[in-house]
């Protein structure tokens, strides 16, 4: 109750209420997230069950077009799956991979950045060079190698089951240095402040100072880049899937849907690519807009003058 009151009087809420773009983005994002979480409940078809769809329905156009069917609002894809349901499931996969990859990145990156910034010295040099090396390898190459090795090791058959954790790790591994560098930079700024010195003088151990005193003071930039990173991870996943390195078509993400439809775009079945593409754009756009708003709110220099 107390924290609710604190939240109710906070600048965060105040500025949120006065920013129509933020409100709109937040609403759209919440709807998309809720829909994708509730996918099995609200979608008309279970697209993961091949018994529920019929190849004869393939490439049915959206309901309002000629040849459209009432039972497939946005038409069907090349396998006869209801496109709307497939998209919702696809969004779910994209969201899962995006959030999962960001959590992975943040976990690794914050840990590395904190240790590197707070302890400094040789460890700092070592960890930051590893981050540089990681940064200099394009994630596409990592993805190609990893999935090739993976398919070799576990067989192509198991790829569909393990694609989600695999993609989380691939995207997470390629982006953690961003967190590490951001956190390290803030830690370097914070660790020389007097409250850290005061904590040392009080006799608190360095680990405790590190996670209890320094870490919370470095989280503002982490919060801001996290929003951008979620958008970026979703896009990376879509790009990988588009290139055929991501989610298999039996369990499509938005990216693999776009790719699957892409081949049919000139034969007139534009909807298979268009609707997932539009959903991806909207999804990324609202995340980025919210991220912009959050960055402005969390930067005291912008409103305190």
């Amino acid at each position: 109750m107390k924290s609710w009151n604190r939240f109710k009087n906070s600048y965060l809420l105040y500025s949120f209420k006065r920013d129509p773009v933020a409100i709109l983005s937040f609403c759209v994002l919440s709807i998309l997230v809720i829909i994708s979480i509730l996918a099995p409940v609200i979608t008309p078809y279970n697209t993961y069950d091949s018994a529920t769809f019929d190849i004869m329905d393939a490439e049915t156009p959206p309901a309002w077009m000629e040849g459209g069917s009432k039972s497939f609002l946005l038409g069907t894809d090349i396998q006869g799956r209801d496109l709307l349901s497939t998209m919702i499931y696809g969004l779910r996969v994209s969201l899962l991979i995006g959030v999962g990859a960001v959590l992975f990145q943040a976990l690794v990156g914050i840990l590395v950045g904190l240790l590197s910034g707070y302890l400094g010295g040789k460890l700092d040099a070592l960890l930051m060079r590893i981050a540089d090396i990681q940064f200099s390898i394009p994630y596409l190459i990592v993805a190609i190698f990893t999935s090739a090795i993976f398919k070799l090791a576990f067989g192509v058959g198991r790829y569909a089951e393990l694609a989600v954790p695999l993609l989380i790790i691939i995207i997470g591994m390629s982006e953690w240095p961003k967190y590490a560098r951001t956190v390290r930079a803030s830690v370097l700024g914070e660790k020389n402040k007097e409250y850290v010195e005061a904590a040392r003088v009080i006799g608190i151990s360095r680990w405790h100072i590190m996670y209890r005193h320094v870490l919370p003071n470095t989280l503002t930039p982490v919060l801001v880049i996290s929003t951008i990173q979620v958008a970026e991870a979703v896009m990376s996943e879509a790009a990988l899937s588009f290139l055929g390195l991501g989610m298999p078509i039996t369990k499509p993400s938005l990216g693999s849907l776009i790719r699957a439809g892409f081949e049919y775009i000139f034969s007139g079945s534009w909807w298979i690519t268009f609707f997932p593409g539009a959903l991806l754009v909207i999804f990324i756009l609202v995340i980025l807009l919210l991220g912009d708003w959050l960055r402005d709110v969390l930067n005291p220099k912008l409103y305190k003058g």
């Binding site: 007097e194 409250y195 010195e197 904590a199 209890r212 005193h213 003071n217």
Partner: peptide
Amino acid sequence: DPMMTLNPVL
């Protein structure tokens, strides 16, 4: 400086 010796987030 008492402004600096207390941790602002706790």
